[in-house]
Design a protein around this nucleic acid. Structure first.
Length: 269
DNA sequence: AGTTGAACCCGGACGC
DNA sequence: TGCGTCCGGGTTCAAC
């Protein structure tokens, strides 16, 4: 499931591919994926130019010239592909946005969606999100302040979108491993050094994952070599039974707060 | 404030 | 090849 680094990668590539382009066609194959009637959706979106694509947490915002915004959340299993009819993967397409003979395909949307809002409405939709962990304003001091009243586990706190936005199941494990902390440790039981380390690991892991194009291994377009190269860089997530890259101990998989969690018993404490 | 559990959704993996 | 069954998992919401 795409998290911050995956959406950041999509954002960069989308701006290159469709930023400034005009939507020539819209095809809605699954009405549940949108929040207005298909007719209204087409009326507002068709022949409109996409000015810029922005990311907020795990969402993407397609800003249209007419002031409307397409708010995308891929949730689980959702993905996008850009290319011609021939290049598109052999998968069910829920929504298709066309730019001449090139199309942006939304695939695997189940709980994921493409909602149409005004600028004011979209702002309202995103009000409950916590800070962006990679924002320049998100300093060590602001992190320590944020953590002050937290008593939950590292794992559940990191994936809480109201605490920090954009971190999901995969990167919370990667961050805890990098910080050498057990995911089930309580926030309020961390000492100052551990809190500082956690902050630094959040920034490091997310930045590194973006640099490697995230871990979604399906290409965004034909010939895409950027997307998904973090997949074989992963330290713990999905590596149960494999050797820890730091100490060699076998990585374990355990359910923590009803979430699949991976960590190393050898070097995380 | 934290935790748990259910509901949402359906493509695709799996079993026979 | 085909049919039935069940899983995954971010988010929301209710209950404790």
């Amino acid at each position: 499931m795409p998290e911050l680094p995956e959406m950041e990668t999509y954002k960069t590539l989308l701006n290159q591919k469709v930023g400034g382009k005009t939507l020539t066609g819209v095809s809605i194959n699954r009405e549940k994926s949108i929040n207005v009637s298909p007719a209204d959706f087409v009326n507002i979106v068709q022949n409109e130019r996409i000015e810029v694509i922005e990311r907020r947490a795990k969402h993407l915002l397609f800003h249209l010239k007419n002031g409307h915004v397409l708010l995308v959340h891929l949730m689980l299993g959702g993905r996008m592909f850009y290319g011609t009819e021939q290049e598109k993967p052999d998968r069910t397409v829920q929504i298709q946005l066309s730019f001449g003979n090139q199309h942006l395909y939304f695939i695997g949307l189940r709980l994921g969606y493409l909602h149409l809002f005004s600028e004011a409405e979209v702002k309202q939709e995103l009000t409950d999100l916590g800070p962006e962990p990679l924002d320049a304003n998100f300093t060590l001091d602001s992190f320590l302040d944020l953590v002050k009243n937290r008593r939950g586990k590292i794992k559940t706190t990191l994936v809480n979108q109201e605490f920090l936005s954009g971190i999901g199941n995969c990167y919370s494990d990667e961050i805890a491993w990098h910080a050498q902390l057990l995911p089930k440790r309580k926030m309020n039981e961390l000492n100052d050094n551990e809190k500082v380390q956690l902050y630094q690991s959040i920034r490091f892991i997310l930045q590194q994952a973006i640099q490697y194009g995230g871990y979604m291994d399906q290409p965004f377009f034909k010939g895409d070599t950027k997307t998904g190269t973090y997949d074989n860089k992963k330290y713990v997530y999905g590596r149960a039974g494999e050797a820890c890259k730091r100490c060699g101990t076998s990585i374990v998989k355990e359910e923590i707060s009803s979430r699949k969690t991976f960590y190393c018993k050898g070097c995380q404490t």
